[in-house]
Simulated assay, not measured.
Amino acid sequence: MTAQDMIANNINPAFPTHPGEIIKDEIEYRGISQRQLADEMGIAYSALNEILNARRPITEKTALLFEAALGVNAEPLLKMQMRYNIQTTRKDASFMDRLAKVRRIAAAL
């Protein structure tokens, strides 16, 4: 653990949260079906289901559609997606090995 990891506002959860999980909880709380939301947003049910089950990322367009349909601000959803992407990438051992190699090469320049 580095000093930066120990800064109170810089704590990363053990398992990153995909923004689709938050939206899924919200529509369940409101009693909105996935099919109804997909129809309101004008997207395929399968695409919405993949987002809600963390198998597809939220894009700028889908974040704005969620904002329009549910009144949930798009920007925090996109920030959450970015954090999810970075945390997931940092758990990819082969990519982290590649990153370490690039850092060694860059340090030698």
Rank of each mutant, 00 (worst) to 15 (best):
M1T: 14
M1F: 14
M1Q: 14
T2C: 09
T2A: 04
A3K: 06
Q4R: 09
Q4G: 06
D5S: 11
D5V: 05
I7Q: 08
I7N: 09
I7L: 13
A8R: 03
N10L: 02
N10P: 00
I11G: 05
P13I: 06
A14Y: 11
A14G: 14
A14M: 14
F15D: 13
T17Y: 15
T17K: 15
H18D: 04
H18A: 01
P19W: 12
P19L: 06
G20A: 03
E21K: 12
I23G: 05
I23C: 05
I23F: 01
I23H: 02
K24N: 12
K24W: 06
D25I: 08
D25L: 13
E26H: 05
E26W: 04
E26L: 01
Y29C: 09
Y29M: 11
Y29G: 09
G31P: 02
G31W: 02
S33A: 06
S33F: 10
S33G: 08
Q34G: 00
R35Q: 12
Q36C: 09
Q36K: 11
L37P: 06
L37Y: 05
L37W: 00
A38V: 06
A38T: 01
D39F: 00
M41L: 00
M41F: 04
G42S: 04
I43M: 09
I43L: 07
I43P: 02
A44K: 15
A44E: 15
Y45T: 03
S46P: 06
S46Y: 08
N49Y: 15
I51D: 01
L52D: 01
L52Q: 00
L52F: 00
L52R: 02
N53P: 12
R55E: 14
R55T: 11
R55S: 15
R56G: 01
R56Q: 02
P57S: 10
I58T: 10
T59Y: 12
K61D: 10
T62Q: 02
T62P: 09
A63K: 04
A63I: 07
A63W: 05
A63E: 04
L64H: 10
F66N: 02
A68M: 11
L70D: 10
L70H: 02
L70F: 03
G71I: 14
G71C: 11
G71A: 07
N73P: 14
A74T: 03
A74P: 00
E75H: 12
E75V: 04
E75L: 07
P76C: 01
P76N: 07
L77T: 03
L78Y: 03
K79E: 08
M80N: 12
M80T: 12
R83F: 12
N85Q: 06
N85E: 12
I86H: 05
T88Y: 01
T88Q: 03
R90G: 08
S94T: 13
F95K: 05
F95E: 02
D97V: 04
R98E: 07
L99D: 05
L99W: 11
L99F: 13
A100T: 14
V102W: 14
V102D: 08
R103G: 01
R104D: 15
R104Q: 14
I105E: 11
I105N: 05
A106F: 00
A107S: 08
A107R: 14
A108Q: 10
A108T: 06
L109S: 13
